[in-house]
Design a protein around this nucleic acid. Structure first.
Lengths: 207, 207
DNA sequence: TGTACATCAGTGAACGCGCGTTCACTGATGTAC
DNA sequence: TGTACATCAGTGAACGCGCGTTCACTGATGTAC
């Protein structure tokens, strides 16, 4: 890796940690450059302005998150041939993964961005929107496959259901922060799993 | 109402609108006093500093939210004697209410606070925490009553399930912002309703 | 192989603006005697 | 009922600090001939 892009990477790593910890605008460039061991003007060599950093952070985050989901459900496919089982196993793996990451995982960058909307320019908002819509279509595809084999026990919109993955994760992260209990997100993902199980499993549900 | 407390109220109204729109620290005191038609020093007569405003906003919000939930489930109790039906009706009413409020409802003040944690002092964080725990115990009580009549079809923790109300609402609000679709929150609340229905309804679930 | 030039990856100092906060003061209303 | 004093609900001007951003400059590396 070229010398310059190493530095750029380091700036982003340092920035991401700070942003996840306390939000984007509470993270000053001074602080970032101090931790990245570079000068302020070095920062502006790599990023035109602070918005460019936000954009880069969101875009990189989407890639990482996507790769992570790819891995996760790939593993799930290895463990079962049944589409419903794959989904349930994937969610279980996701819950485990969430419990392994100490103190907040990448997902919340999206929420941070959503909540500080007006601070960002249009490009940042668009990047954020694309990320969320990407997740919707990913989970929607999986749900459609499941539905082909397992008719739903109650009719609900697959799009809404697909959004619920993001909702539960992001909502879980918000609440985990609010009550200061990092395990909350994981627990909520397992509840989503329980819902999908009840929704798609063929009856015989007595005890 | 005394002259002073009218002004105080006006400051808070104006501030709340701005905070919900773009976050707490993106809302300047200058802007608040301009919209409240008062001078900057007038603001500092009513609030010692910006944190005091945050605290007042969160506390007032909790009261309003609590009153709102009280009303909502009181109405639900009038409409049915059955605890499960009460819960389901309550959620339906909540969804309708969310769709009536144009552009974001109070709930997100809590998320805003959670995501800008480091900006606030301990008292603000504590107020926020109390709010969330209050909702947990409220919903937990309702769920316990339901469970006495309707055993769960799948064993899950009532505490986690109670948290899911907040998770779905807050997560829904975050996502609604991210994709710019105000109806998203309402849809997610209805999915939670669907989950509770599947979880507690006695079998005979085959369409 | 040596020289000329260009690009890369930064440095250091300065700037200006907006922000939260302070402080000395004031006119209107309330209270004691 | 009138006067003295206290409190309430503000005003207006100033301050200082941190922040994002700019700008002129520089030493190291890469490329052409």
């Amino acid at each position: 890796m070229a010398r310059g892009s190493q530095t750029r990477q380091r700036i982003m790593d340092v920035a991401q940690e700070a942003v996840l910890d306390k939000g984007f605008d509470a993270t000053s460039i001074d602080e970032i450059v101090a931790n990245a061991e570079i000068t302020k003007s070095g920062f502006f060599y790599h990023f035109r302005d602070k918005n460019a950093l936000a954009r880069a952070l969101i875009e990189r985050h989407i890639e990482i998150e996507d790769a992570l989901f790819d891995d996760l459900f790939e593993r799930a496919r290895e463990l079962s041939d049944d589409p419903l089982q794959q989904l349930l196993i994937g969610l279980k793996l996701l819950a485990e993964l969430l419990s392994d990451i100490p103190g907040g995982h990448p997902g919340c960058i999206v929420a941070t961005a959503a909540y500080q909307d007006r601070l960002f320019d249009n490009e940042v908002r668009e990047a954020n929107r694309r990320a969320v819509l990407g997740w919707r279509s990913r989970f929607r595809d999986m749900l459609e496959t499941v539905q082909q084999t397992y008719p739903m026990n109650e009719q609900v919109s697959l799009d809404h259901l697909a959004d619920m993955f993001s909702v539960v994760i992001e909502g879980g992260l918000v609440m985990a922060r609010a009550v200061n209990d990092p395990r909350l997100t994981e627990q909520q993902v397992l509840l989503l799993r329980s819902y999908l199980n009840l929704l798609f499993s063929p009856a015989s549900r007595s005890n």
